[in-house]
Amino acid sequence: MIATIAGKELKSLFASPLAWVVLTVTQLVMGYVFLRRLDDFLQLQSQLARLANPPGATELVAAPVFGTAAGVFLFTVPLLAMRLIAEERRNQTLVLIMSAPVSMTHIVLGKFLGLLAFLLLTVALAALMPLSLAAATNLDYGLLAGLVAGLALLAASFAAVSLFTSCLTVHPVAAAVGSFAALLLMMLAGEAAIEGLNAREWLLAASLAQVLSPIKNFEPFAKGVLDTYAVACALLLVVFFLALAARQLEAQRLKG
C-alpha cells in the first residue's frame, strides 16, 4: 500500500512540469558551481602540489556541489511537498486515498517515500558530476559516499518537515511558504541555539537542539566524518515530523 502511494506520487510528479523545472534548475545551479570550482581547482593545482597533504578534487570540487544542492533543497523541497497534501486537499482528490482502506501512517509514509525517491534522484545527479572526474584524478570515494549519505539525510529531514506543514493548510502556496520559513528558522535558530547552549555549557540541551537543526547534521558528512550522533538526530527528526503529520491528518478527520 505504501509502495502504491509512493509510486503514484512519483508518477504524478513527473507528469507535472514542476518536477522537470526543479530538476533543470537544480542541475543548472550545481553545474555552474561544479565548473567554477573545477576551474579554480585547475588553476590552484600547481600551488596545491607544493603542500605536504594537499586537498583533492573531492574536497575542493565535490563538497561545494553538495553544499549547493543542500541550499537548493531549501527552496525546492517546500514546493514539491506542498503538492503532497495541501494541493490534494484543495483539488479534493485526497478523498480517494482517505476513503480507501489505508491507514494514516501508510498515507504519510507513502507520500514521504515518493518525494524522497525524487530527491534521491537529485542526489544521484549531484554525485554524477564529481564522478565524471574519476578518469582524470583520484577521487576520495569515502568522502563522496559521506556527502551522498549526508545530502540524502538532509533531503529526508527537509521532506519530513515540509510534509508536515503541507498537512496544516489547504492552501498550497501557504504550505510552501510555511515549510520554507520553518526550514530557514531551523537552520538559523538551530545554529544560534546550539552555539548559545554550548557557550553556557548546557551540553545536553545543545545536543538535543541538534535534532532540530538538519544543516548542523549535514556538516560532519561534508567534512568526511561519519558522525553516528548526526545520523541519529536526522532520523529522529524524520520520525518525529512524520508522526506529527499522521496525527494531524487524523485530527482533521476528527475535527474537520
Binding site: Q92, T93, V95, S99
Partner: peptide, 10 residues
C-alpha cells in the same frame, strides 16, 4: 464524492 477525486495528470 460531490467532486470526483480525479488526478487529471493520469
Amino acid at each position: 464524492p460531490e467532486v470526483p477525486p480525479l488526478y487529471r495528470e493520469l
